[in-house]
């Protein structure tokens, strides 16, 4: 009986935990996104070489960094799912992949719109751009494999293996600007050296980075909640949650009465 009860409690517990955290993470993400982007767009100084076109950096760099960060997170979940067979980890693969794919698309698109005025071309087949495009295909492949099997666990396993193999691409993206000659500039912020950027430009960028981190987390939490519901649709607590969310609305009402 405990063997049956244990994963049952776990899915629900994870769902409730994510539900408690989600409003806070969302609020912080919206706040930092507003501050970072308004600061970067309107108040940061113009670049002495690139003029105002450099302002694309405030979405391009955070999106690019967290397209890779989300992939690393997805790969860790895939490893946990494959080694310890934890179902919540399997479901996280499906929760993270679409978010990472959108971030990768944003990084590629804003890169193209920045490349056109600065390099004179929307696209070149150089190492950085090509490896980031491969990242987009990896996300697409993971999603396709996840849903390609009749048995959901087989799909999660196949998607997990692809996610782990694809980790090879992350250092290639990161070091591509050093290993090959490219139009793409080198890293602006690194852990080891002083950032090669004026402080007035750096602060809004750091806030935007925080905003994209929180936003990625919020999207993944929201999607993981739905993924949990989808896989436990036949369980009584999911039925209660989806069809008569009385307890939830009662809570809101009592809070309103108190305030």
């Amino acid at each position: 009986m405990w063997r049956w009860l244990h994963p049952y409690a776990k899915g629900e517990a994870t769902y409730q935990l994510l539900g408690r955290w989600l409003p806070w993470v969302t609020a912080l993400a919206l706040l930092s996104l507003t501050v970072g982007l308004v600061w970067g767009l309107a108040f940061g100084p113009a670049d002495y070489q690139q003029g105002d076109s450099y302002r694309i950096i405030y979405i391009h760099v955070p999106a690019a960094i967290f397209s890779m960060g989300a992939y690393a997170g997805m790969a860790i979940m895939a490893f946990i799912a494959l080694v310890w067979q934890i179902r919540t980890a399997e479901w996280s693969i499906a929760a993270i992949a679409p978010v990472g794919a959108v971030l990768t698309f944003i990084a590629l698109f804003t890169g193209a719109a920045w490349g056109k005025p600065m390099w004179g071309t929307w696209w070149v087949w150089d190492a950085r751009l090509t490896s980031e495009l491969i990242l987009l295909f990896l996300y697409a492949g993971v999603m396709a494999l996840y849903y390609a099997f009749e048995d959901a666990r087989t799909g999660a396993k196949a998607a997990g293996i692809l996610a782990l193999v694809g980790v090879v691409n992350l250092p290639i993206i990161h070091f591509s600007v050093e290993w090959w000659n490219t139009l793409h500039q080198g890293a602006t912020i690194t852990k080891f050296a002083k950032p090669s950027m004026a402080t007035e430009m750096l602060w809004p960028l750091l806030i935007s980075l925080l905003a994209f981190a929180l936003m990625t987390a919020a999207f993944v939490m929201l999607r993981l909640r739905h993924e949990i519901l989808r896989h436990e649709l036949h369980r009584p607590w999911v039925r209660e949650e989806l069809l008569n969310p009385k307890s939830a609305s009662a809570d809101i009402n009592s809070q309103q009465e108190q305030s």
Binding site: S53, V102, F109, T110, P117, M215
Partner: peptide, 23 residues
């Protein structure tokens, strides 16, 4: 945007469109 308005606003517009679609 110092003559780069099209590219800057295109980037921000498409970014928010993509994020909104995901949401």
């Amino acid at each position: 945007m110092g003559g780069y308005g099209f590219f800057v606003w295109l980037s921000f517009g498409v970014t928010f469109l993509a994020l909104f679609a995901l949401l």
